[in-house]
Amino acid sequence: MTVLSLPSFPLMQYARNLFQDLLVRVLRTGPVPRHVAFIMDGNRRFAKTNNLELREGHVAGTELLLKLLEVCFRMGINTVTIYAFSIENFNRPKVETDALFDLIRNNIVVLGSKDEMAERYGLAIKILGNRDLIPEDILELIVRVEETTKDNKRGTLNICFPYTSRDDIAQAIQKVVTDVFADTKQAPPPKSFGPPSSTSRPSPLHVTEKMLEKAMYTGESPPLDIMIRTSGVTRLSDFMLWQSHKNCTLEFVDTLWPDFGVRELYRLLLKWSYVKTLELQRDDLIQTTKVNNSTKNDYVGNYDEEVSSHASALTKISSVEKAVVHDEGIVEGICID
């Protein structure tokens, strides 16, 4: 069987790649999301239903992830965020968390190493999450990978590990409070220099939504456009709550993560592209009608004046003509006479 299919296999692979490439090229002529997030759910159920070991389920999931990331970045999506490990995952049996750590360790090395994805697509890899909880050897790796890819500007791959959104919001609030606190702690200028200017000092009242947003782990990423969750679970499970509860398309897909293919991703992106195109067209329409209305209104304002001035000019002209005719007649008459 394998011998038979071997000769055709590379050809098929080639054709498939060509086709996929074409689809990517087609899709990127339209609107492309800036930021996509994945909750990769279903690795364990996949392993169970296919009689695989738990670990193999996770491996299958990671393989798929690499494939999808390639599609995403070729399409021109700026940032992809993946939920690799939740803080709650520490509640899982140790065998499994160890396996997950191993996977993360290996994949971070693979992603960050030369002429791998990060290099090919110019990606900066960032690990988002509570670093106090990361085992030391992985932390070292992470710091190294982040360091080597930090100058890549074309895109970003955010790996959330170990992450929960509430932890994210809490640390953002903490950061902002610390900043405000530190700013106010700096001694105000001595009294001899005049009264301290209250405007230059940041006060608690100056805290804004923007400040909080910037202080989040995802502070440097563009706003989230699509959140995809597989395996039919319709919860956010403490993932990017602040980022996804507004102006973001939520997609809950029934397939298990390792079965979720490029085709399905393509379908979701096409859907987004379609909806976005309609939205943009509607915005354009609103804008142009607004512009038209405003110019029309301006014009209407002047129109009456113009008409009346035209009318008066016309009457003037005709009276002048009449006068001329009259004069000419007179002149002629005079001449004839």
Binding site: S165, R235, L236, L241, H245, T249, L250, F252
Partner: peptide
């Protein structure tokens, strides 16, 4: 459409969403 429209983010942590 499935759109949370700015529903309080802190509160939807594990909430089952039906649409």
């Amino acid at each position: 459409q499935l759109d949370l429209q700015g529903f309080p983010p802190w509160q939807i942590r594990l909430t089952e969403i039906y649409h």
